[in-house]
């Protein structure tokens, strides 16, 4: 495959960036998108040019590190797929591909496609935990949790914190991320004790970090590589209202 890449290049956080065009020649359709970028980078390095900086880690779709908007969609057009698991067979030969970083005030660009997502850590630190004393290992099944509740919690816990929801949101709101973290604990007995403080602190942290407000566009749900549902946003809203009672 031969492709033309239009990649966002920005030297540093204070610099002005722009899209630059690079050819990607003889790309194997079995490569992942990041492997294709690796090859482009090899060529750039050989030519003495600065390689394209991008975030990545596990390359198995589970760590949440990779983060690029490909042709206007966070993680590209394949549903429920991180960009590291997006394969080149999903593209037409000769295609033009535009690659941009997550764009949000709360995610300052560090270099090229790398953004600083520590604002998500700040939200987690505000309440994304339980502080109960666990003591020794409890007997199995001593704390019974109905299957639908466990499933609900696990579905929310699927969030890998990549930030695609924020990248997709017209308001750069972190509501889907925050709601998944609130909801996964709110329904479990271990999480209920601190539920009121958690929802208030985490939503406050979200706004303090410069994320926008949710106005129910639901772009986040469509962009999420893990298919996190906006039903968790409704859960967060319920938890928020409950916190005043």
């Amino acid at each position: 495959m031969n492709l033309t890449l239009h990649v966002w290049r920005q030297k540093g956080p204070q610099d002005k960036g722009k899209l630059e065009t690079y050819p990607a020649k003889d790309v194997s359709s079995d490569m992942s998108f990041l492997e294709m970028l690796d090859e482009v980078n090899d060529k750039l390095i050989k030519e003495g040019k600065d390689p394209i900086a991008f975030d990545h880690d596990c390359r198995e779709g589970i760590c949440g590190m990779c983060s690029s908007v490909v042709n206007g969609r966070p993680h590209g057009h394949q549903e429920k797929t991180t960009v590291c698991q997006l394969h080149m067979r999903q593209f037409e030969d000769g295609a033009d591909i535009v690659v941009e970083p997550w764009l949000a005030k709360a995610f300052p660009i560090q270099k090229d496609l790398i953004v600083d997502r520590s604002a998500l850590d700040v939200i987690m630190q505000a309440g994304g935990y339980t502080s109960c004393h666990t003591g020794g290992v409890v007997d199995a099944n001593s704390l019974l949790i109905p299957k639908p509740v466990a499933d609900f919690s696990m579905d929310a816990a699927e969030c890998i914190g990549c930030g695609a929801c924020i990248a997709a949101c017209p308001n750069s709101s972190a509501m889907l991320f925050t709601s998944a973290k609130v909801a996964q604990l709110a329904v479990l007995p271990q999480g209920k004790a601190e539920a009121k403080d958690r929802v208030l602190e985490m939503t406050k942290a979200m706004l303090d970090e410069g994320f926008g407000n949710c106005t129910n566009h639901y772009e986040c749900q469509e962009a999420c590589p893990k298919g996190i549902s906006v039903k968790f946003i409704a859960t967060l809203n319920r938890e928020y209202l409950k916190s005043f009672t």
Binding site: V69, R73, L103, C169, P170, S172, S173, G210, N213, H217
Partner: peptide, 23 residues
């Protein structure tokens, strides 16, 4: 508040689920 949270526009942005009414 929301426009200040997303000051930069993408070169290409696909509409995934939102509607003209919502926007």
């Amino acid at each position: 508040e929301n426009s200040s949270a997303s000051p930069e526009a993408y070169a290409i942005k696909k509409r995934l689920k939102t509607t003209f009414a919502a926007e």
